[in-house]
Design a binder for these strands. Structure first.
Lengths: 243, 243
DNA sequence: CATACTTAGTTGTACTGTCAAACTTATATA
DNA sequence: TATATAAGTTTGACAGTACAACTAAGTATG
């Protein structure tokens, strides 16, 4: 185990002051049953545990022996809860204050992840998906996690206006109407079909596969994400939003 | 002074593990002499100080007794170095790893600030402005600050394409050509005059004052930022960049 | 087997805002 | 008074979206 950290450094100099607690939290999004959903975990009720039984974002303390850096820490926590190793992961921001954790001054580094709908089939026992209703989630969240979730939803909504982020919420193969539907779910407004198709097809983002989706009506072309494709940023937002 | 933090909590429970160091750094931008410039401070050379004499971003440890939250900590450090109390301040991200500080596992919360050119007249003794040349700064920076600076410049450049952020780099009164010049300095390319004017004037962002700027040619209308104006997000970027 | 129904996908016109370049206006200076 | 210079406007071309109608391809139904 590493030496007690509050007192001594590694080079002989003493820097003697209290350190904030350091945690990482992850806002995990997926689209389930035609709604944007977020993954929450229920907190334990051990002695001294703040917010016992409350729902919270998956996360926890940085382990300086296991976690090489913050992103590795976020991936570890994500893997623990969902089994998914490499989803889309983006840093969201950090929240730190004297008041947010009853155990003392603490700072959390928040990330947000996008998962294909069915990726997290074997969920951890204490984890559960919650649909977002009017920007929030039903249970009252621990710490300042409601605020972090709110920031994540706003950031996602905002970026969906001009990026291809929803592509990371899709299964391996999907149709253009499928993708449009996901955009519409997140933005909560309908989009123009022809403009949407033109934009997506000219973005060098997806490629058709040899199969079609068949159903009770006209078949639809199936597409897949081009390999190792970073998100695309469009030069315009979708609907010049209101005024 | 607060009790030693590595060992005991405030509620009787012991959470006994090493904590990362927690710092805040600020990337302070201003436009000086027709170039984007960033504020750096020279590090001391006391015993055990990492990167002695190297230039670094202004910042340092969170003081859990003085700083209510992370943003307050950032404002304190900014005030110390520039005397400026309330510039535009935005969270940039966080960098944390075992390797970035020789004193041990550390995480920094980075902010970026935009200052009017002449706001920071009385600079701290150890602080100095450095112009950005091809995205970077001349001296080799301490820690991973070159990486943080790079992220800040990229974020600023990116947001300038579709927001009114440069307005926060302007003095109290300025002309539209002045503002366009600042956009062009940051983006490092010329913009269309008429489209620029149309966009800015229809954005409900600035208002004319009763005076004109006089010079050796046609006078220009002076404007000022509308009071308490949050940044404006435009529905398009400026030049559909290349392809 | 024809017809209705549904969703996929295309086409065409109107509109909005940028691009590009020319043009007009207002001042100082020679 | 002419000239130079920068401020600000006008005009037409163009790109991409909005809106709406249209065609295409399948299943279901009588």
């Amino acid at each position: 185990m590493a030496e007690q950290p509050g007192r001594n450094g590694t080079n002989g100099r003493t820097f003697d002051f209290p350190r904030p607690l350091t945690t990482v939290d992850v806002v995990v999004f997926a689209v389930r049953e035609d709604a944007l959903a977020v993954l929450l975990v229920q907190r334990g009720a051990g002695e001294g545990e703040p917010f016992p039984h409350a729902w919270a974002l998956p996360g926890g303390f940085v382990d300086i022996d296991r976690d090489r850096d913050l992103e590795a820490c976020a991936r570890r926590k994500l893997k623990d809860k969902t089994g998914v190793a490499s989803p889309y992961l983006e840093q969201l921001g950090s929240w730190g204050s004297a008041a947010r954790d009853p155990r003392g001054w603490s700072a959390t580094h928040a990330y947000f992840a996008l998962l294909p709908a069915l990726a997290a089939a074997p969920l951890a026992a204490d984890a559960q998906w919650f649909p977002l209703v009017s920007g929030g989630v039903k249970p009252k969240l621990a710490f300042d996690h409601a605020e972090i979730l709110d920031a994540a939803v706003k950031r996602l909504r905002n970026k969906v206006e001009y990026t291809s982020l929803p592509a990371y919420l899709m299964p391996a193969e999907f149709t253009l109407p499928d993708l449009q539907k996901v955009y519409e779910i997140i933005l909560d407004r309908p989009l123009e079909k022809s403009a949407f198709r033109t934009r997506m097809l000219s973005a060098d983002l997806i490629e058709p596969v040899a199969r079609m989706r068949r159903g009770p009506n006209r078949p639809a072309q199936l597409y897949r994400l081009k390999k190792a494709r970073a998100p695309v940023f469009f030069a315009r937002t979708f609907n010049p939003p209101e005024g």
